[in-house]
Design a protein around this nucleic acid. Structure first.
Lengths: 343, 343
DNA sequence: TTGTAGGCGTTATCAT
DNA sequence: ATGATAACGCCTACAA
């Protein structure tokens, strides 16, 4: 059983006090060059590793960012590819700044007392900040968290708190652009399948759709908006119904790529082919979008960028910079591929 | 600025010593019921939250599992859907046992001294165990990590260490089953697109393919095995070449769903339709598999199960149970959908 | 049953 | 430039 080599051990072996060792290691100016040199060498020889717990206990900084990430009912944890890519961006960004990510998994961390609570879990680990991904913004525990003293950033959810920021894509503009693209191709009967309508992206994309329809002088038809949940299956069913309409749409804007894929699938099952018989545009530009058949025309969210922006926000706030916008919106980009064509 | 309520505060307010408070909170037997009651109530009133750092400093247990997860060259972090699902399984499983996950992001945690090193990062945070996902098993730092004192579990990679276990799917059997399925359908010219051949799953699936070809009395043809990298694009190119062969295959076993999707795409581009002109079977059963067009016939890996098995292994080893197999193999299951048919 | 005190590994504040 | 020494918040013998 190797004993952990501590700062005391270094002090003993190098014949100085622990205080000096600490200063040497942390690059303080007031330590004689040769002393520092000696200590540094010894540290690397012994492969000394500082204990984060001890350090954070005294500095009150853990250099850890907590991540709360779950997805809705019936869609077990961590399932939507979109979130993962965002997480990747976050990871990269905060990593560069010396932070690690704590993915909260347990509701009673450490087998500890009492039930869970977001705030409690975050405090328990003394995280310096929190990223909220795919949570329900109306959850009272989430609200308590963002009202607390810990800097938070919410991705794709509307949330307010003294120390929290929100980052999301410009969903409304993107949706409108989707419709305009379809219209430009010559489509006039354009339907939409929405995301979960109790989520900010869900309503924003629907709003964008409506605005564009109106702005283009198209008739708004109730039967052309179907409610989905961001996942494939819901869109498949919705598309079935859409296609069964007396006057079916010639194009569908699905508020997520997963749903666009579901729509394509439903079309195929109905004997229709995309884009020949039906155009479909998605939203997200998930990794698979270019690879499915046909390749998806979609609105690209800058997923890494969202994660990075979230990381930025946290790092800045943790550093004590309060001058930050409450909401940060990232542009989306239309990517035209094979799932859309003239009617 | 709210002051953190500590155990001392609880002691002061409840008129007992910190020792008693600690014992009460941790459910020791030797504390008078009414005393405990009083303390517990006070704790919950004040919303007391223990500090993980302080506790782990003294107990030498952090209740945190470190996760190292990256993917190969040119495929930025966290990209392969397979890994995410595994992570989900791991998260669930260890969460139930009171562990959280630390997703290592920084190479110089805490802005600390010296360069990174897996082992160092793990020690720095005093994680109780480590999960290794999508790493290069030949990396010398990875090897150092698994030779260390920290319990490790490697997913989908071959690795040996005194305190490490490996979990993976039965890739060989699965690949063989894919070939047999195709053969049963009547196919005789069956090609394969491999995964990265320097990875254990990559070679195992290739081996399974070879075994089955042989066992079925089919001729093994060199030109029928193409090397891919588990991602879509590589399979698309491979398929192009396969289809350009003087005697092209009538079926392809792609060693990953992403590659199967790439293959389907290439077929479409060549004017062929799946499964009418070409059968394709994948591996993984990613979330999208049932939703793409056509729905993928594939070998389902129990991704949540892999994550859970990994969690199990870690939790048990952390608890000090050494009686464990070094390698744990999970069965895969053939899922027949729409991408395969008789030739 | 409860209090006291030492220690976990660091950093930080004083002196010196 | 360096050494003591006191925190940080908690657990756990050992005493009482």
């Amino acid at each position: 059983m190797e004993e952990r080599v501590t700062i005391r051990e270094l002090a003993r072996r190098s014949g100085v006090s622990v205080g000096t060792v600490s200063r040497a290691l942390n690059g303080y100016a007031d330590v004689r060059p040769e002393t520092r040199e000696r200590i540094m060498r010894l540290a690397s020889e012994l492969d000394y590793t500082p204990a984060a717990a001890a350090r954070s206990l005294v500095t009150q900084r853990s250099h850890v960012i907590g991540v709360f990430m779950e997805t809705g009912e019936g869609h077990p944890d961590l399932q939507h590819p979109f979130f993962h890519e965002v997480l990747g961006g976050l990871k990269q960004r905060v990593g560069r700044e010396g932070f690690d990510l704590l993915l909260f998994a347990s509701e009673r961390p450490g087998g500890g007392y009492g039930p869970h609570s977001y705030l409690k879990r975050a405090r328990h680990h003394s995280v310096d900040g929190c990223a909220l991904i795919g949570l329900d913004p109306d959850d009272s525990e989430v609200r308590r968290l963002v009202r607390g003293e810990i800097p938070c950033v919410a991705i794709d959810m509307q949330l307010e708190g003294p120390n929290t920021e929100v980052v999301m894509s410009d969903n409304e503009a993107g949706a409108a652009e989707a419709v305009r693209h379809l219209h430009g191709l010559g489509h006039r009967r354009i339907a939409t399948i929405t995301g979960m309508i109790d989520s900010r992206p869900g309503v924003d994309r629907l709003r964008g759709y409506r605005n564009a329809i109106q702005e283009l002088g198209l008739a708004y038809r109730d039967e052309y908006v179907r409610y989905g949940d961001f996942y494939a299956e819901s869109a498949r069913e919705a598309t079935e119904k859409l296609l069964a309409l007396p006057e079916p749409p010639t194009a569908i804007f699905a508020a997520a790529d997963l749903m666009a894929i579901g729509a394509v699938r439903a079309a195929a099952e109905a004997g229709l082919s995309v884009p020949a018989d039906l155009s479909v545009v998605g939203f997200d530009d998930i990794q698979l979008a270019p690879h499915v058949n046909p390749p998806l025309t979609t609105l690209r969210q800058d997923k890494l960028g969202l994660g990075a922006a979230a990381g930025d926000a946290l790092v800045a706030r943790i550093a004590g910079d309060p001058e930050r916008p409450q909401l940060r919106t990232l542009p989306v980009e239309l990517v035209v591929r094979g799932s859309t064509a003239a009617p």
